[in-house]
Nucleic acid binder design. Structure first.
Length: 453
DNA sequence: CCGTAAGGCCAATTATTGTC
DNA sequence: GACAATAATTGGCCTTACGG
């Protein structure tokens, strides 16, 4: 049973073992225990008796589900100290906020940094105070005496069969993480992030040739993880099996992932019903396929141009991870951009939200579209969430509409006295020159920076 | 637009050789 | 025989060329 669960979570297991190995290298023989269903993934016992719980936040972890897991961590018996591995900067900040009032010491690190860092590099950030610690300091700070959590033994042990079992679609699900190489996993992650992506855009996001991407797609297809969906013009989506693999890796709910993202056809019988798929969100994206494709095109050429200019693409988030929820007065409000991203030229990172706004042509609609952003940027949250105020990029249908939008934005910003770091362009320009050209125009001189400058 | 074939490059691993 | 240095092999990732 254990072997199987750990194989399903193989990528998580690898990351956590790396951290555990670094700890052992510093402190000598450690105790170590995995958990199947407790809020922590594992616990480490240091030679002196200090205990640390390790929690990994997977890339597909959803906001509420993971918040709940952190909450259980606080409700349960004292975990000792907590080491949390976050998949990206945004969620690291979010997790820190959630644990700032926890009654135990918490250290948070980016997974990719924690896994590669030597003992001295300051990658571990305390939840409550600013700054960052190297692993040895982090251990001194966080490890404290606590009882090692216990989990009930599985009632039944079913050992998986021999490892060199079938390949292809016959490969059992729990073996997939071992069958796939890093490139295949990267491709699957991207297809999971951007359902209905075209191979061409996928290649751009992967940063490889179309031919290479095509081969990766073929091998993912052969394993039954990815499908070309006729209803989407042969564009790609992660199959139910692919979604399950990602969910198992990240300890998230398989059923929920499928109900949101399943590309399985749903023949409802109504006219145009061939475009129906089971997942709620993937269906939405499929219904507005041209909008979806436009956003894909934008992020794909952004990635391409960034590479050409030697900017590092740190993070490119699809809508589900680009949304931000915040308190405004008594109510919880939100923004739902089409994308969020972090690029890094030589120096400071540059962040942005994207709104691909095809529909807004009337002033009232434009004002409605802007309202959530005016609320968001009126608060401290943009800076809390990202360290800087991200640029807000809005792409309108054509030049006339863009002009129009700028006037409306200027008026609204004056009315509510909030300055948006707003940049406006339109579709034809983006298509011709890409995001880095794009002829972005600002409302006023708000001191922000347009893409590529 | 897309996929396939053939082959190059690179890093990791294994085998071989040389030295004490 | 133990160990280190070097060579050979392998597997993964990727590109260019080409064809539908």
């Amino acid at each position: 049973q254990w072997r199987r669960i750990l194989l399903e979570r193989l990528d998580a297991v690898a990351a956590i073992y790396r951290v555990a190995a670094s700890i052992a290298a510093l402190r000598g023989a450690i105790g170590f225990r995995w958990y199947r269903a407790l809020p922590m993934d594992a616990s480490v016992v240091l030679p002196g008796g200090g205990v640390l719980a390790v929690v990994r936040q997977g890339a597909t972890a959803d906001r509420t589900g993971f918040a709940k897991r952190l909450w259980r961590l606080r409700e349960g018996p004292d975990p000792g100290g907590v080491l949390l591995l976050a998949p990206d900067e945004t969620r690291l900040r979010h997790a820190r906020r959630l644990l700032a009032t926890a009654p135990f010491p918490v250290l948070v690190a980016l997974e990719r940094e924690a896994v590669g860092a030597g003992p001295g590099r300051p990658v571990w950030r305390p939840a409550r105070v600013r700054g960052a610690l190297g692993l040895s300091e982090a251990l001194a700070h966080a490890a404290r005496g606590a009882a090692l959590p216990r989990e009930r033994e599985p009632a039944r042990a079913t050992l998986p069969p021999d490892l060199d079992a079938a390949t292809g679609p016959g490969t059992p699900g729990w073996l997939l993480p071992a069958r796939l190489g890093p490139a295949g996993k990267r491709a699957l992650n991207l297809i999971g992030d951007w359902p209905w992506i075209a191979p061409r855009d996928l290649a751009a996001l992967l940063g490889c040739s179309r031919a290479r991407a095509s081969r990766l797609i073929v091998s993912l297809e052969a394993l039954g993880l990815v499908a070309r969906v006729p209803a989407a013009g042969g564009r790609l989506a992660a199959t139910d099996r692919g979604l399950a693999m990602l969910a198992r890796r990240d300890r998230t709910a398989v059923g929920l992932a499928r109900s949101r993202w399943s590309p399985a056809p749903l023949d409802s019988g109504v006219a145009g019903g061939w475009r129906e798929v089971r997942g709620r969100n993937s269906r939405q994206l499929l219904r507005h396929l041209d909008h979806t494709a436009a956003v894909h095109g934008f992020v794909a050429s952004l990635a391409e141009q960034a590479r050409a200019e030697d900017w590092q693409v740190v993070q490119l988030d699809p809508p589900r991870r680009a949304s931000r929820y915040f308190r405004h007065g008594a109510r919880v409000r939100s923004v739902h951009p089409d994308a969020f991203g972090v690029l890094r030229p030589d120096g400071e990172p540059w962040t942005f939200f994207l709104e691909w706004e095809r529909r807004a042509v009337r002033p009232s609609t434009m004002a409605t579209r802007l309202a959530p952003y005016l609320r968001y940027y009126a608060s401290q949250r943009p800076t809390d969430d990202h360290g800087v105020r991200p640029a807000l990029l809005v792409v309108l249908r054509d030049e006339v509409t863009a002009d129009h939008f700028l006037r409306v934005a200027r008026r609204e910003m004056e009315r509510v006295r909030v300055a948006l770091p707003l940049w406006v362009s339109h579709e034809a320009l983006i298509e011709d020159e890409g995001p880095f050209g794009g002829g972005w125009r600002a409302v006023d001189d708000h001191g922000g920076v347009a893409p590529g400058t």
